[in-house]
Nucleic acid binder design. Structure first.
Length: 436
RNA sequence: GUGCCCGUAGUUCAAUGGUAGAACGCCGCUUUGUGGAGGCGGUCACGAGGGUUCAAUUCCCUUCGGGCACCCCA
């Protein structure tokens, strides 16, 4: 029985053309976030399991995290997300760092799931966080950065919507306004998270199941449903309008709108999966009918750093997954044509490989990325190889060329050939590289 | 973990209760200093196991693999 050539379930092989795409995506991300002064960090893919047990969210830790016991009997997890790790790093140097801290990373993360569209077991996720800013300026900047990245990918505003909510508003709603117990409030928040995926009747039935009999009788269910109909902050009941979080959301929406980000809206049903969010949360939704889903999101998590026994550090951040981003870009036709890194293929004619070396070396010294047709004596095969690799140019080097110091430059797309000196060839190819 | 769909050449697909075809690809030849056109030739497949049957790639079951949705989430 031969070995399988398939990659591990839910993980991807990156062939050169795939890696090229990944490099493009990551390159755009890096360039965008660095424009805002964010610095790259990294960390191990393995962490002690208990790092995730405190705040990540029950299901993710218990059922979706890859774990094993190492030879020293330690419980080890393959990181399912980056936020606990970066919080650990900040806590470790809590006193030494220059706040506000602007950090980013593009780690690969693992979750044991059944793969499907937009979700695999291994994915790469841009994590962007700002540490040490307690006021709304942090949310504003983080959302601006998130938006800027999409803009850099040439997305238009009608392609996506940025939805905002506040965990504090949700708490005020469930605990103060509806007077639910903490357990009921938590269960209800998870249910609200799924509201848009359910039939209204089904949703009501499940919501009522959470409430106690006396709560049902006092008409709480109606009150609750009316609440969820709120499409804007102004639709909220007067009692809730007084809550500080409403004013915060209002300020944030105004600030973002003023800076040109007009596709933001309040969404009372937005929850986010992680338990560590403490205040404002946001999520970016794809508006494309074929890919109508959450793309990525984030929010404020002021309590994580202090889990490591140091003074709290207020934090806002988000994580953008590569798989969903790719779906987004494909749905909206925003994927660019990508080319090989290699500039030119040298076709060797005859047994002159050794004699051709100085010319090849010169091409590289003058700045070209040069692949040489070794291993094949036949010219047609060498040309075919270059075409198949998607290169634009081939240079022929044979006895005549070496004697005359004039080389045939073949444009593999236009099927044209010109004879030039090496210097001239290099400048032609460099021009082409610049313009594509 | 639950549900639905699907496993046939390298790839995308087809047909059939009597052991399979195409397209593209690949290899060779078609002027041994020129590819992508055309021509000729060639290469390569029924995921695995069991059952029903005279006979299974086809029907049934199991298993493995893949896809999609749910759960959850990026």
């Amino acid at each position: 029985m031969a070995l399988s050539t398939q990659p591990y379930k839910g993980a991807r092989d990156f062939y050169p053309e795939d890696k090229r795409l990944q490099k493009y995506l990551f390159g755009v991300m890096r360039k965008a976030v660095e424009k805002y002064g964010y610095e790259e960090y990294d960390a191990p893919i393995l962490e002690p399991l208990e790092l995730y047990q405190a705040k990540t969210g029950e299901e993710i830790v218990n059922e979706q995290t890859y774990t094993f016991t190492d030879r020293g009997q330690r419980q080890v997890a393959i990181r399912p997300e980056m936020t606990p790790t970066v919080s650990r790093m900040v806590a470790a140097r809590r006193q030494d760092l220059a706040y506000p801290l602007r950090w980013y990373s593009i780690p690969n993360l693992w979750r044991y799931e059944r793969p499907q569209r937009g979700r695999l077991r291994e994915h790469w996720q841009l994590n962007v966080d700002i540490f040490g800013v307690a006021d709304l300026g942090a949310e504003q900047e983080i959302i601006e950065v998130a938006d800027y990245i999409l803009q850099t990918f040439k997305a238009k505003r009608d392609m996506y919507t940025i939805k905002l909510n506040s965990r504090q508003l949700v708490d005020a709603m469930t605990q103060d306004y509806l007077k639910l117990s903490e357990v009921e409030a938590f269960t209800l928040s998870k249910l609200i998270d799924r509201m848009h995926k359910m039939e209204p009747g089904e949703f009501i039935a499940q919501a009522e199941a959470i409430l106690s009999p006396s709560e049902r009788e006092s008409g709480l269910s109606d009150k609750f449903q009316a609440l969820l109909q709120s499409k804007t902050l102004e639709d909220l009941p007067a009692e809730l309008q007084q809550h500080a979080s409403v004013e915060e959301l209002r300020k944030l929406i105004t600030a973002l709108t003023n800076s040109g980000i007009t596709n933001v809206e309040f969404d009372i049903t937005l929850m986010r999966g992680f338990d560590y969010y403490t205040d404002i949360v946001f999520e970016v939704f794809d508006n494309h009918p074929e890919n109508n889903r959450s793309l990525f999101g984030g929010g404020r998590y002021d309590g994580l750093v202090s889990l490591f026994g140091v003074e709290p550090v207020p934090t806002v951040g988000f994580g953008m997954g590569d798989v969903t981003l790719q779906n987004f870009l494909e749905s909206h036709n925003l994927m660019p044509q990508l080319y090989s890194e290699t500039d030119v293929y040298v076709v060797i004619i005859g047994e002159i490989y050794a004699q051709a070396q100085p010319a090849i070396k010169k091409l590289r010294e003058m700045g070209l990325k040069v692949a040489v047709g070794i291993g094949d004596s036949k010219i047609d095969k060498q040309i075919k190889t270059a075409v198949k690799k998607g290169l634009h140019y081939a240079i022929f080097i044979g006895e005549n060329e070496l004697n005359n110091e004039s080389f045939v430059l073949k444009n593999l797309e236009g099927q044209t050939e010109e004879k030039h000196s090496l210097e001239r060839i290099v400048s032609i190819i460099k021009d082409h590289r610049k313009n594509r």
